[in-house]
Design a protein around this nucleic acid. Structure first.
Lengths: 342, 342
DNA sequence: GGTCGCAGGGTAAACGTTTACAATAAGGCG
DNA sequence: CGCCTTATTGTAAACGTTTACCCTGCGACC
């Protein structure tokens, strides 16, 4: 039974192909009687519509693409769960592209966007070259884009977005450390080119400044958003003459590496060094000690971002006024933060 | 510039659309002179081929689908990295579907497969109802399928696959525990319906039997492949009158939950209870203590599985003799296993 | 110089749908 | 009983490519 098309069904049912098509897409426009006859023919032939032809004809693929920094990050996979849920509900499939290490060239991304392979795009990561150059160009007029999880580069500021208030959340985290009596507070942020954690650094700096605490250069170091990067960063931090009594990590993944390295140096968490993370990934509570962190409503972000995209697609508009929705964050206190020892 | 098609290019270049098409796909069949003229017209109009039309015409989407139990699992995301690498090299995009909690009905999967939305399928998870019913039916004749990471249900035994020897690996893990002097060894496996960890349980049982060690019912419990499931399972295990001095977890994710719960019970790892995992996810080495586990060549599995699929697609064959490739596993010894205390 | 071969390029069909429009049948009302 | 409306179905065009086939013209060989 190689490849039965609508024609076979029509022939078997004794109707025209138009009627078959209508039976599938607008059943109410067809008589009960013929509908049954067609249904029968469909099952008998084992017909199912050729999605390629449908996509072609309708001009849409029901495919959306989400761009994120790393598929490995449990935070993003949690967001993705929300995206998928919403996507499935609306009949979309999801393609994931990761920008990891800038592996995608602008050309690749551009090609992906311009050729109408996907109906829309969700940006959970906006590397600067990516954002500005390609997206702001012609592509955006064709494909609806919405942004999630983070602030966007200024060029994309008019895109709709859904995210927590990263500045405020980072301030909350830092203030919590301060409230516990810490004065020497270090931070491990992401990487130079990434916007992901920039706001978190801003919030940290703001809180430190507001509390009139010192901000030494050696106290804020990049951790590449990875475990190994964070381990390296932690070693740097501990090497400082006045080493911090507390470390704010821009995400939990790095906090895992950080805590490991603190303990490897023979220091106790939180007795000697307190650690606080960001994201509340599912491993946070089984760490030793359980990680104090900022939680984000991951699934909600995913769903909302997807729903906004859907609305965009239905409106058929590529760009527009980009109001951003702020979702609430939450400080979850566990055991990795204590009073400073000295 | 809404939607420039091949026609505009042809007109501008003063040639027929066939020539334009040839310039793109078979440049050698066209004169240098016209080729240049067409190239010029292409950039001038900003033309790029409509992928939908191409897919439709050529009958292929350059999309492959991979089915896995959970996108959240770092092990699978590591495999995915290999898959993507290979896929990108061959010009494919990847759609991920997760079977998590059996959310996909057979109908959904069947629909996905039958409608030729994808050129091929990689199964990293074969839920039993999924495998047998849908795949073995007509679908398999149309879409090439290859299996990765695990054994497959008997009905699918003729599909090609790439995986470690799970039985042998589990035997190695168990034997390592035995070699350290453990006699009461528990196991946390996956879930009833999943084949993923079945072989690992088999290997465990085989090793225990070979060493003539007792196998109590209460010593092998399901952990749902999740942290919370493993925590629950660990509590069960510790409740046993003769509680195990060592626990073999069918994956690292569960080992994390297990270790946490052991410590929460006031016991030491490995002093009181040794823990060994499976997969060697990237968190294994920063756990406290660092996790002894079995490592799999994740990227290699991903790449090989993708390459096999490509070969299948090129041959245009849906099924065939399914020889399985075994890739090597490795015991990586860290700190979570010690000698039994009492 | 004529015929043959061949390269370059044009014409048009085909892929499987959807859908605007036409046609036909049926039914209601004057 | 005939005409008009409406409900249902059929006809055919269209979507943007790719490609089999044909045509034209040019060069080469006899």
């Amino acid at each position: 039974m190689p490849d039965v098309s609508i024609k076979e069904v029509a022939k078997l049912a004794g109707v025209s192909i138009a009627t078959v098509s209508r039976c599938i897409n607008n059943p109410e426009k067809v008589t009960e009687k013929t509908r049954l006859r067609v249904r029968e023919a469909i099952v008998e032939t084992g017909y199912s519509p050729n999605t390629l032809a449908q996509s072609f004809r309708r001009g849409r693929t029901n495919l959306i693409m989400v761009v994120l920094p790393s598929i490995g990050d449990p935070f993003f996979t949690a967001v993705m769960r929300g995206v998928r849920t919403a996507a499935k509900a609306k009949g979309y499939s999801v393609i994931i592209e990761e920008t990891q290490h800038n592996t995608m060239t602008d050309d690749e991304i551009g090609a992906m966007l311009v050729s109408r392979q996907t109906d829309g795009i969700i940006l959970l990561a906006t590397m600067s070259p990516f954002g500005s150059e390609v997206l702001s160009a012609k592509s955006r007029r064709r494909v609806p884009v919405v942004v999630g999880c983070e602030k966007v580069s200024p060029e994309l500021a008019d895109l709709p977005s859904v995210h927590v208030d990263n500045v405020a959340a980072a301030r909350d985290a830092t203030n919590y450390l301060i409230s516990q009596g810490h004065k020497r507070i270090g931070m491990i942020y992401g990487q130079e080119s990434s916007l992901l954690t920039e706001d978190r650094e801003l919030g940290y700096r703001a809180a430190m400044k507001a509390a009139k605490l010192p901000l030494k250069d050696g106290w804020v170091v990049p951790g590449q958003l990875s475990i190994s990067g964070a381990r390296q960063a932690t070693r740097e931090l501990l090497k400082q003459p006045d080493r911090p009594t507390a470390i704010f990590c821009a995400n939990d993944e790095m906090a895992m590496g950080c805590m490991h390295e603190v303990k490897a140096a023979g220091l106790g968490v939180p007795e000697d060094v307190s650690v606080i993370g960001f994201d509340d990934i599912r491993y946070a509570e089984v760490m030793d000690p359980p990680l104090t962190t900022i939680s984000q409503p991951t699934e909600e972000i995913g769903e909302r971002v997807m729903n906004r995209l859907c609305r965009r697609i239905e409106e058929g508009r590529g760009d527009g006024n980009g109001d951003s929705q702020i979702v609430p964050h939450d400080l979850v206190v566990r055991k990795s933060v204590g009073k400073p020892s000295g």
